[in-house]
Structures are given as C-alpha cells and as structure tokens.
Write a protein that binds this DNA or RNA. Structure first.
Length: 267
DNA sequence: ATGCCTCAGCTCCTGAGA
C-alpha cells in the first residue's frame, strides 16, 4: 500500500498541438470547459507574445505562461494554479525558434515541448533536430536531478516503434520513424522516464496525429507522435492515459489530438 | 507524385508542417 499516493490530489495533465492558437482558440476553450485539466501545454501557437490571448484563459480560470514567435512554433503552459520558475527554451542551446517552456506547478515540474519536425533524414533540418534532441536530453537530465516529480510532454515528432505508425513498412526510415530519432527518444527515456500511454492497455492503432489530406483521420492513417513522459516518482501515481480524438472531429480541427494523463500526486 | 490539406504572410503564391 502507498497511502500517500492513493486517492490523493488527483490531477490531469494534457498536451495538444493546436496548429495556430488564433484559429483554434475557441476549440481550446471549449475543450477546457469539457475537460477541466489541471495543466495543458500547447504547441504551434504561431503567435507573437503580444498577441497571446491571456485574457481568454484568465476568464476560463487558467493561469498562462507563453513563449512564441511569428508564423511558426510557439508554446504555452496553462495551469489552474500559478506556474513559477519559468524557463523558456533550452538553457545553453542557442535557438531562434520558440519550442520549450518549463515551469513548476504545485509539486510538479512541467516541460512542454514542440520537437523539431526534421523534414527528411539527411537534411539540415534533420541535423538540427538531432542537435536539439541532444541538448534537450541534457536539460531534462538537469531538471530531473532538481525535480523528481517531472513530466515532459508535447509534440515529439517521433514514433517509439511500429505500433505508433499506421503503415510501418511504407514509413520505414522516413521522418518520425528513423532509427536515429528513435534512439534519441529512447535515450530520453533512459534518463528515468516512462511513456505514460503504454503504462496502460490501449486500443490497437492508437494515433495522435493524422494528415489533413486524403481523409487520413477517417481512415485512421496516423502516427502517435504526441507523448507524455513521466519520471519514476510520477509513474507511481499514474492512473490512466488516453488520446482524446473528439476535437479532431471538429470543423477546422488541428491535425493533432490532445493526450491526457490522470495522475495522483502525493501531498 | 516535388501531388493530396491547412496555416501564415510584405497573401492571389510560397514555405512548412508531418
């Protein structure tokens, strides 16, 4: 028995790549009303900081931290209680792209990240993805040492294995599925993290992203590239993890669906 | 198939996403 972990401080943590917060804000607000999670990290807000809709989130009962740029990238962290000790991007890694936001919420350390796409193996963008992944690993290692209750969640743009891919043969060695990317993902996990989705029984062919083209969602031709990784200490309290496909059925949806973790925290 | 769809922007096409 672990009395401090049972039925104490149940929390929900979620990640969602919204592919433009300008377009998706009404859907995010609707989703939060139906799913009043404690923490939600967003990716691809595609907003400069002066345009971030902080007031809308305040009205919805959320504190917000954000870090964006024009046109591309951009991340945010919404929380029911205030976030503190906020860090933007990866310290020591010079980057002109807004991809990472880290903050403390209650006893949790939360890292929300929009991993580089990488475009194609061998490209300059793929090289950048590899360098970024190595730097992220150093950052997560440092953070884990200081904060045992750590969650790293976001759009990883990497599949763990063939179970995360609708067409493993067709996508073999393609972007999101290369050995190099998966090695980096496993190296992150090796720091002492766990893929919370696979801690639980899941439906076969579960994905978090579907191409806009070719009726990919209707055909369930997708990838599982949005992940919630939890530290050893948090794993003890993990109770469920699911992908919420409902928003992908909206009119003008994001191409990604939210991933939600239920976790009990010790006081 | 350097395509398909969606979004941002010095917008009527292009770059990028995944």
């Amino acid at each position: 028995m672990q009395p401090t972990l049972l039925c104490k401080n149940p929390m929900q943590l979620a990640t969602w790549n919204v592919n433009s917060l300008t377009v998706r804000l009404p859907q995010v607000l609707d989703w939060l009303q139906a799913n009043p999670v404690d923490v939600l990290v967003l990716q691809e807000t595609k907003l400069t900081d002066d345009k971030f809709p902080a007031d809308a989130f305040t009205a919805a009962g959320y504190h917000a931290q954000w870090f964006g740029q024009k046109t591309y990238n951009g991340v945010a962290l919404l929380s029911r209680t205030p976030a503190t000790n906020v860090v933007k991007n990866i310290p020591g890694f010079a980057d002109d792209m807004a991809r990472v936001i880290t903050a403390s919420v209650a006893s949790l350390r939360v890292i929300g990240a929009y991993f580089p796409n990488g475009q194609a193996p061998g490209s300059d963008k793929f090289e950048y993805k590899m360098e970024w992944l190595k730097s992220l690993r150093s950052w997560v290692k440092t953070e884990l040492e200081a904060h045992p209750h750590l969650v790293l969640m976001g759009d990883y743009n990497i599949t763990f294995d063939d179970d995360d891919v609708w067409d493993p043969e067709g996508m073999r060695d393609q972007i999101h599925c290369t050995d190099e990317e998966r090695y980096q993902l496993r190296s992150l996990v090796a720091l002492g993290l766990h893929d919370s989705y696979r801690l639980f029984a899941q439906p076969p062919q579960s994905y978090s992203w579907w191409d806009y083209r070719d009726f990919a969602f209707r055909r369930n031709r997708g990838l599982r590239i949005d992940h919630i990784l939890v530290s050893n200490a948090l794993k003890l309290g993990a109770r469920a993890c699911h992908i919420d496909k409902a928003p992908r059925k909206n009119e003008r949806p994001s191409d990604h669906a939210p991933v939600v973790l239920d976790v009990n925290l010790s006081p």
